[in-house]
């Protein structure tokens, strides 16, 4: 089966890996990991300038210049805050189209998405012309509602942010993949290691967004490469179509 190119908001991507830029041991390490990942898009957060800390300026310099920047309303807990950060990100980046990872968190302990606020903010931002990529729960109903609102991708979590637990509910991810057909489904958050990424891709996810699994690995650069291969491998297996599972043995060689 021939694969078709991933397309998000009219942009074509050769890599099905989107990488975050937080929590790396150093900026040099981040740059090397981003390059090793083969990814073409990175997420960034928007924060107040701290006059005593000039490192964010070096941060921008450390991003590989050919990568598309996906601003994230990271750390927003209300619709109001998310709208503000979204609009500021558009002014800051001045990119066309105005891509946005929309994240509205429900509480600081679980960091799970507030899907009620998410639907409300999505409606407003789509109307304002943003290409919204909402970070959502692994809830097929909400995923469908987001698709209906005109988002550019639906991004259900595999597990809570930074947990590295892998896909805790593959059944829900599968249902989302069966229901959301008009835009890419990107598994965002919760992947811990390469096999988690492969499983997500084998289920049929269009792409994966991850940060901690790479940044907090003992060797982020090698893990970035592992994730690249894992995603390619899982996607290839998905396209190839796996064999049928059987509850009994089935000899590979003819009888003697």
């Amino acid at each position: 089966m021939k694969d078709k190119t991933l397309e998000i908001a009219g942009k074509k991507f050769n890599s099905r890996l989107i990488v975050g830029t937080g929590k790396y041991p150093s900026l040099e390490n981040m740059t090397a990991a981003l390059k090793a990942s083969g990814s073409e898009m990175v997420t960034v957060a928007i924060r107040r300038v701290d006059l005593k800390d000039r490192s964010p300026q070096s941060f921008y310099q450390a991003l590989p210049k050919d990568m598309i920047i996906l601003p994230n309303t990271a750390g927003c807990y209300t619709v109001e805050d998310a709208l503000r950060v979204a609009r500021l990100s558009r002014e800051l980046l001045n990119q066309e189209p105005a891509l946005l990872k929309l994240e509205i968190l429900g509480d600081p302990k679980t960091l799970l998405p507030d899907t009620v606020g998410l639907l409300e903010a999505t409606k407003i931002l789509v109307k304002e012309g943003f290409k919204v990529l909402p970070y959502t729960n692994d809830d097929p109903i909400v995923a469908k509602r987001l698709e209906d609102l005109g988002v550019s991708a639906v991004m259900p979590l595999a597990a809570p942010i930074g947990s590295g637990l892998g896909i805790v509910n593959p059944f829900n991810i599968q249902m989302i993949l069966e229901q959301v057909k008009s835009v890419p489904v990107i598994v965002d958050a919760g992947v811990g290691t390469a096999s988690d990424a492969t499983i997500a891709m084998e289920l049929g996810a269009d792409a994966i967004l991850m940060n901690t699994a790479i940044a907090q690995a003992q060797d982020p650069v090698t893990m970035a490469k592992a994730m690249k291969l894992a995603i390619e491998s899982g996607r290839m297996a998905y396209c190839a179509g796996r064999m049928v599972k059987r509850n009994s043995a089935f000899a590979s060689s003819p009888p003697l």
């Binding site: 975050g20 830029t21 937080g22 929590k23 790396y24 981040m30 997420t43 960034v44 957060a45 928007i46 924060r47 107040r48 300038v49 964010p56 300026q57 941060f59 921008y60 920047i69 601003p71 994230n72 990271a74 750390g75 500021l88 800051l92 980046l93 942010i161 930074g162 958050a189 967004l209 991850m210 940060n211 901690t212």
Partner: peptide, 10 residues
Amino acid sequence: VEILQMIGGG
């Protein structure tokens, strides 16, 4: 006056 910039994040 609020001045904001890009920083590392997921």
